[in-house]
Nucleic acid binder design. Structure first.
Lengths: 198, 198
DNA sequence: GCTGTCATGTAACAGGTTACATGATTCG
DNA sequence: CGAATCATGTAACCTGTTACATGACAGC
């Protein structure tokens, strides 16, 4: 029950059509939220039915019409109410972490490859975010209001990617220093030999 | 399609019943994964039907019987195959971040309260993880095999909580220094007055 | 005329959450 | 006897993902 509210924030920043919202969810707001257009259409329809948004058909030159959504006064009240509610701490769910933890039960080299690939992705994204920071917020100390909020959330995106890069680097360094193949001692799993390369 | 595999990892570490798994998912494995007992029972039933696990009814003294699940050879193959597959980078989804970004559209003081509460939670959890680290892994440089994997995933939990503490602290410091009430200038929202305290 | 993009959607399914139901046993 | 804990489950619902469908116009 939170995509609704993410959409309300996005629409208060700038009224938009379903597709435009989907694109924006790949960018700025997308540091910490994501949604596909199908989902957005569904939720938008419900929000319209509930009177949280208003719709205007907008004719465009050389393109199909679009429906532009904007937050209604009722939607503003809903948003303001939601913002003041406590948010429970959400547990992170990471498939990669499960693989790291379970690496002994398969081909450890393959898991290291998977981790390396993820590390590369996170490095790329970190570089991208840092570029955005430089380009869009060259003077952060002067920011106020919503612009400051946007900047601080981007900072979160940067810090999160740094977390990934540092953690995965620590993992790879420990794993590569203390292997390959973990010579001798594996007290668990006496009979089976799970470390064979495929 | 990943709870299955998380359960396979957990069951290879130690065969267990549905409830025991649910409890473990609140602890160690729970740094990066979580599931309720209802969900676990459902998935366990499917895994049994698919032949990934074997079940043994275990009579207990002074307690109801339990069904102990263990990974079957077929399950081991499934797990090994999954471990070698690439994992796509999962986007974090954070309600709190949406609130931080949208704070201008409601009562900013209330949002700061929400952030403070979350910061306190993350500090607590960080302290707990650091305690686990000290207690369960006093000599990390000597670890190998699965024990090293466990330690490194715990390290990830610690780093993640540090990320939260640092980010939310940065947010609060910037926000408290550069306010309260962001005197004057709010180019957005000329008519309405969303900053009133509740 | 074909391909690509903009734009909106439907349908089926998979995954996760919440509420409820049941039964045994221990402890006060 | 009542409450708490262990243990297993069902049912309803909500969310999210994937695949597909449709139509208009733009450019080659």
């Amino acid at each position: 029950m939170a995509l609704e509210h993410a959409l309300l924030v996005a629409l208060r920043e700038q009224p938009a059509s379903g597709l435009e919202l989907a694109k924006r969810f790949g960018r700025s707001i997308g540091f910490f939220w994501h949604a596909t257009h199908q989902q957005i259409y569904r939720v938008l329809a419900r929000m319209d039915a509930d009177g949280w948004v208003t719709v205007t058909e907008v004719a465009q030159s050389g393109r199909p019409d679009k429906k532009e959504y904007a937050v209604s006064p009722a939607g503003e009240r809903v948003l303001a109410g939601w913002l003041a509610e406590p948010t429970p701490m959400e547990p992170l769910r990471s498939e990669l972490a499960v693989k790291m933890r379970g690496a002994s039960y398969g081909d450890r080299g393959a898991v290291l490859e998977v981790v390396r690939a993820n590390l590369a992705d996170h490095r790329l994204r970190l570089a991208h975010y840092e570029q955005l920071e430089k380009r869009d917020h060259p003077h952060p100390e002067a920011l106020t209001g919503h612009e400051l909020d946007q900047y601080l959330v981007l900072r979160g995106g940067i810090r999160l990617e740094r977390f990934w890069v540092e953690w995965l680097t620590e993992y790879l360094e420990s794993r590569q220093a203390r292997s390959p193949e973990d010579p001798a001692r594996s007290p668990e799993d006496p009979a089976r030999s799970p470390e064979e390369s495929r």
